[in-house]
Design a protein around this nucleic acid. Structure first.
Length: 626
RNA sequence: GCCGACGUGGCGCAACUGGUAGCGCACUCGACUUGUAAUCGAGCGGUUCGGGGUUCAAGUCCCCGCGUCGGCUCCA
């Protein structure tokens, strides 16, 4: 599942937390089991993580699922022994002698004991969790009866007292991971596991995984006939089918309506542009890796085949901002026009590495609900403030309600502009974010190349966090494009640009909603809102009248007049996750009434037709879930 | 991009250590006409992702592409 990790999750573990100790200890048991079963396996690192733990190993042949079962069995034996975790302080020299056969541990000792390196970003959080500390310590696993040392690992702890205090765990998957997270380093084999303070908690977590799999938007997308990724088009490039098209159109329509009310103006821009544009914007310098290679057009040759006029490079656009700056620049601008808010559902293309493409949440072509706000420095704080409120309100209308904010700051190695500009922009964002009274976290060095950002993270029905909206302050593009407006005193000034996308991308937001609702969209978004089911054929005309009434009111209502039995029709509507089933047989028809069945199986029988129609319309109008 | 797994009719799966493909759902047709999750019967549908190779014989083995999945790195 593609979620950003959440630091406010209830699963978060602090160093002293019981779960942290259980998971860290489980990682040690895992490593001991692996070294028992596969002698000579060198160890990487094995920290606790959200919901579990992992350990990296250097092995000749990757682990198989069968190996995993054996390892799990061995771990259970170790846990049963009740080995004690014993802390032992050591020195670099001693530790190196002891761990002479562990090349990766030797490297860690060097990194840890080298003060110059220690303060740098060389040490990742996971590494620090695993081995970092003021002094070097080794944790030994000791047989409680004989006192014999069974195993040990360079580690700062803390751990549980004995392995018996690992009440419930499971190994979940095998994967490869680069040593120290750097793709230039060798790849190790990583085993992931999950561990909890009780069997119930473990079962709960495993159930959550099953639930998440059922809700997987890629699966639901096929089942509900919403979208697909035809191989012929290319990896990461989706087509929306009619049913998915309805949902997407409704999402866009409502968004448009709200943007109109909030003072945005709609613009359109093409999908390709000459290299010059992206040179000016800085994309070719800073974002080229994420762009499709150029198309070379308009080359002219003479009779000998010699080039008379060189080719022009055209690029697919990876972002909409350069185009919007050109709209701003298309004429002289006055302070009276500011803030100028330009909105576009802009489709962009990014050359994602083949291994990262993931359904609609990580596509190579996607449509941003993108806007760029050009304003004066004085207007910026108020604009950011109202913008954040607007964002959160709109997301709530789509059924999300659990948010936290994240501020991403500059990565000096991947950005342009001056420190002062970045500081000013970051401060403005910080101020706006704090006013919202939502949890706020810091993502150091996570900003785009042109400016810092606030992102709105939303949690879905399963408690998973998704990065949705981003709001970025940008001093750079106005400079690079030499944007100006004339102020009231007649002088020319440079506007500030705010980039913002609420849904991030329509495709990703579609996927988030699909998973959030497990395919059971609220009536206002449901592709089919009502299915009418006659008990027998003779009641079809009766229901046709009602369906006709609903349709004239704009309701997406159908009648199932096929040859199936009623029970089958109910099952079909249920599988399609239609919010309202309207059923009528002799009883209802003779009384001018109709019966409801909902997706959860509840029914509400004998409702007067007027009331039934109003009930449907009301749910749609108020965007409530049924 | 890297490591590993995988790729069989629209979908979900089956086919022993190589002997030219079966099932369920969906779809089409026919019969049945039934108050809250699957009526019965018949039929249509696959050059087993693409291209090469090994073999008397390849869905099964080998190579190269393309794509998917789980991670790593990266990211909306």
């Amino acid at each position: 599942m593609t979620t950003t990790s959440s630091s406010t999750s209830s699963n978060e573990v602090g160093v002293d937390d019981l779960r942290y100790r259980i998971r860290h200890s489980a990682a040690h048991v895992l490593a001991q089991a692996v070294q028992d079963l596969f002698p000579g396996t060198a160890l990487g690192i094995g920290p606790p993580i959200e919901n579990g733990f992992y350990y990296d190993f250097a092995v000749e042949t990757p682990f198989t699922p069968e190996d995993l079962k054996r390892i799990e069995k061995r771990m259970k034996e170790i846990i049963k022994q009740g080995q004690r975790f014993e802390r032992r302080v050591t020195t670099p020299t001693e530790a190196k002698a002891e761990l002479a056969k562990e090349p990766f541990k030797l490297e860690l000792i060097d990194v840890l004991t080298n003060a110059a390196v220690k303060t740098s970003s060389e040490i990742t959080t996971d590494m620090a969790a695993d081995i970092g500390g003021e002094e070097l310590t080794i944790y030994d696993n000791v047989d409680p009866r004989t006192g014999e040392r069974k195993w040990g690992d360079l580690c700062r702890g803390p751990h549980v007292e004995t392995t018996k205090e690992i009440p419930a765990f499971a190994l979940t998957r095998i994967a490869a991971a680069y040593w120290r997270g750097n793709e230039k380093n060798p790849q190790l084999q990583r085993i992931y596991g999950t561990a909890w303070e009780s069997q119930e908690k473990l079962d709960e977590y495993l159930h959550l995984l099953v639930e998440a799999e059922k809700r997987d938007h890629r699966k639901l997308g096929a089942e509900l006939d919403l979208f697909s990724f035809p191989e012929e088009i290319g990896s990461g490039l989706a087509v929306f089918h009619p049913k998915g098209g309805v949902v997407r159109k409704l999402m866009e329509d409502y968004s448009r309506e709200r943007h109109e009310q909030a003072g945005y103006e709609f613009v359109y821009s093409p999908h390709v542009a000459k290299s010059r544009l992206f040179e000016t914007s800085g994309h070719l310098q800073w974002f080229a890796d994420g762009m499709y290679p150029p198309m070379q057009l308009d080359i002219e040759r003479d009779a000998d085949g010699e080039t008379k006029r060189p080719a022009q490079d055209y690029y697919l656009k990876p972002m909409n901002c350069p185009f919007h700056t050109l709209i701003f620049r298309a004429k002289g601008r006055s302070y009276r026009e500011l803030p100028l808010r330009l909105f576009e559902f802009g489709t962009v293309y990014r050359y994602e590495k083949s291994g990262v493409v993931h359904g609609l949440t990580r596509a190579r072509g996607f449509t941003q609900d993108d806007a760029h706000i050009f304003c004066t420095p004085e207007q910026m704080p108020a604009e950011l403030d109202s913008l954040l409120t607007f964002v959160l309100d709109l997301l709530r209308d789509y059924g999300l309600s659990d948010f936290y904010l994240e501020i991403s700051t500059r990565d000096p190695s991947k950005s342009m502009g001056t420190d002062q500009e970045w500081a000013q922009a970051t401060a403005a964002l910080q101020y706006a974010a704090e006013k919202q009274n939502l949890p706020l976290t810091l993502d150091e060095g996570g900003a785009a190349f042109y400016g810092p950002k606030i992102s709105v993270q939303a949690k879905d029905a399963l408690g998973r966090s998704w990065q949705l909206s981003t709001i970025q302050v940008d001093f750079q593009l106005p400079q690079r494009f030499d944007l100006e407006y004339q102020d009231s005193d007649g002088t020319r000034k440079r506007p500030i640009m705010i980039h913002r996308a609420l849904f991030g991308s329509m495709e990703r937001f579609f996927a988030v909603l699909l998973e959030h609702y497990a395919g059971a969209f609220p009536p206002w978004l449901a592709p089919v809102q009502v299915v009418a089911i006659p008990v027998s054929k003779e009641h079809t005309p009766y229901l046709e009248d009602i369906v006709g009434r609903l349709r004239t009111q704009g309701v997406r209502a159908e009648i199932d007049d096929g040859d199936d039995r009623m029970q089958k029709k109910i099952r079909n509507a249920q599988t399609r996750k239609v919010p309202f089933m309207l059923i009528a047989g002799e009883q209802d028809a003779s009384a001018g009434r109709v019966s409801f069945r909902y997706r959860d199986g509840t029914q509400d029988n004998g409702i007067a037709i007027d009331d039934a129609v109003e009930r449907v319309l009301d749910a749609i109008r108020t965007r409530t879930q049924v």
